[in-house]
């Protein structure tokens, strides 16, 4: 009779978040994004579209940037997950956070954690030197306030700093 059946059983998964070990029993359908926000209270990572189309949910998995809304938490057994909360402290900001402040790389702040996590991961990627190449490498992160010019400038300033 029932055309729908829903699983209510949970699966166990263990990974680290911002260097701290975490063990959870999660709904197998739970995304990494919802798990971080709802289970672990790490609300810095944002949901803008839930379809991998805006980048607000960008976190690092083993150092690489991923859209956490497109990734099931249960698939990350043993992974090292890093979020905006693990990046810098008020007294010791990450250079990328400092650059976003210095060069005004945001307005409403909603896309900002995703932009910063994306930008930090970009530093370790083979991205070309020009502003246009950085803009292309950042094209997975939407900013509806339109702060792109300053975001690119912030990334370039950190890259320049790192190069010297």
């Amino acid at each position: 009779m029932a055309s729908h059946e829903f699983r209510t059983d949970r699966v166990e998964v263990a990974f680290t978040v911002n260097g701290k070990p975490v063990g959870l029993a999660v709904d197998p359908r739970a995304t990494l994004l919802d798990t971080l926000r709802d289970e672990l209270g790490l609300t810095g990572t944002k949901k803008g579209c839930d379809h991998g189309q805006c980048g607000a949910c960008t976190v690092h998995v083993n150092g690489r940037r991923v859209n956490s809304c497109l990734s099931f938490a249960a698939t990350h057994e043993g992974a090292a997950i890093d979020t905006i909360e693990g990046l810098g402290t008020p007294d010791n900001l990450h250079p990328m956070q400092r650059a976003f402040v210095e060069l005004d790389g945001y307005q409403c702040g909603y896309c900002t954690p995703g932009q910063i996590m994306s930008a930090v991961a970009l530093l370790a990627e083979p991205c070309g030197e020009s502003d246009a190449e950085v803009a292309e490498c950042m094209s997975g992160n939407v900013c509806r306030c339109g702060a792109y010019q300053n975001i690119v400038a912030a990334i370039q300033s950190v890259r320049k700093e790192n190069a010297t």
Partner: peptide
């Protein structure tokens, strides 16, 4: 002047609607 909002927004500490439980 730099934004007073900076310290919370660049650290994922903004408190938006869906962050409230």
């Amino acid at each position: 002047m730099k934004r007073k909002e900076d310290p919370r927004f660049i650290r994922g500490k903004g408190r938006y609607l869906d962050d409230i439980v």
